[in-house]
Amino acid sequence: MKKINQTPQVVTIAGSDSGGGAGMQADLKTFQARGVFGMNVVLALTAQNTLGVQQSMTVAPEFITAQFASLAADFHIRACKTGMLADEVRVHSVVENLQKVDFGPLVVDPVMIAKGGHSLLNDTAVASIKRDLLPLATLVTPNIPEAEVLSGLSITNDLQMQKVAAYLQSLGVKNVLIKGGHRDSERASDFLLLENEESYWIHAPKIKTKRTHGTGDTLSAAIVAELAKGASLVQATYLAKCFLQGAILNEIQVGHGHGPLNHWADLVTEVQLEQQ
């Protein structure tokens, strides 16, 4: 049994993207690319492509619990993440189950809006994430619009990113990564605030492209993979950004809208890590 469980194992707790570019499909592709064995707990299904989300349906809480129990009974999971959580009922189910199992460090990607503009999370679910899920998390990884919703504060400059990160940390999450790709600048600069009060900026050249479907899923999944392999949180975040940059830079031509990333891509070295 010990030999079987030597391979780093991880799980994504998220929704399914039938178009394969985001959600648990992006997570599983990232896990494979980064050398860990990936599993999933399905919370919702979507009829989705690069043009948007056409329909969605949720999974019953009883079946969510069954999936958690099945994985916990057989695998040695070293890190996990959440993605699209759909609604308050699903958030509550995930929180209850995470309190029963040991799936290692938890990365929360607070997915709220699809690339095509479709809302993926209602207000009561956001409140439940803030109140119940974030205190369980090792890291939360909002982009700027998501960080603004979670905090009720606006972000237009570096100082405001730092203030919002501190606010999110006050909600109980140990570490915060605010992704800066939505800002109008030549670099995509992410701010990482650690529980020991150290902080870092992670910079990469911004790439002008519409093929960015699944960027948040991919980054958070890559962080989970690196944590499962034993990296520190700073190392894991840096390596994940290197992988994401390569996945965006080396485009593939799929779909007619916001196309998916290239999960075959290698790490790039043009990412800069700067301690604050």
Rank of each mutant, 00 (worst) to 15 (best):
R183Q: 13
I223H: 03
L219S: 15
Q275R: 10
Q275V: 13
G255S: 08
Q55H: 12
L85H: 06
P145S: 13
V101C: 10
R211D: 15
N40D: 11
P205F: 14
W264R: 13
T141Q: 02
L219D: 12
G104V: 09
T82D: 12
Q276Y: 14
A231K: 08
H76I: 05
Q235S: 03
T156C: 11
A222S: 06
N49F: 08
Q48M: 13
I252N: 02
A66K: 02
V89L: 14
K130G: 06
L227E: 09
T138C: 09
A114F: 05
G35H: 05
K3L: 05
I77L: 01
Q54D: 14
A73Y: 00
Q276S: 09
D74F: 15
M161H: 00
D27M: 08
N196W: 12
G214R: 00
L51V: 11
D17P: 07
V41Y: 01
L45A: 10
N262I: 14
L133P: 00
S170Q: 09
M84V: 15
N196C: 01
L134A: 07
E146K: 03
Q67Y: 05
T209V: 10
P145N: 10
A137P: 09
A127Q: 12
T46S: 12
L193C: 09
L261T: 11
K29D: 13
V108D: 13
V42T: 12
A114N: 03
Q32N: 15
D123G: 06
T215K: 02
T124K: 01
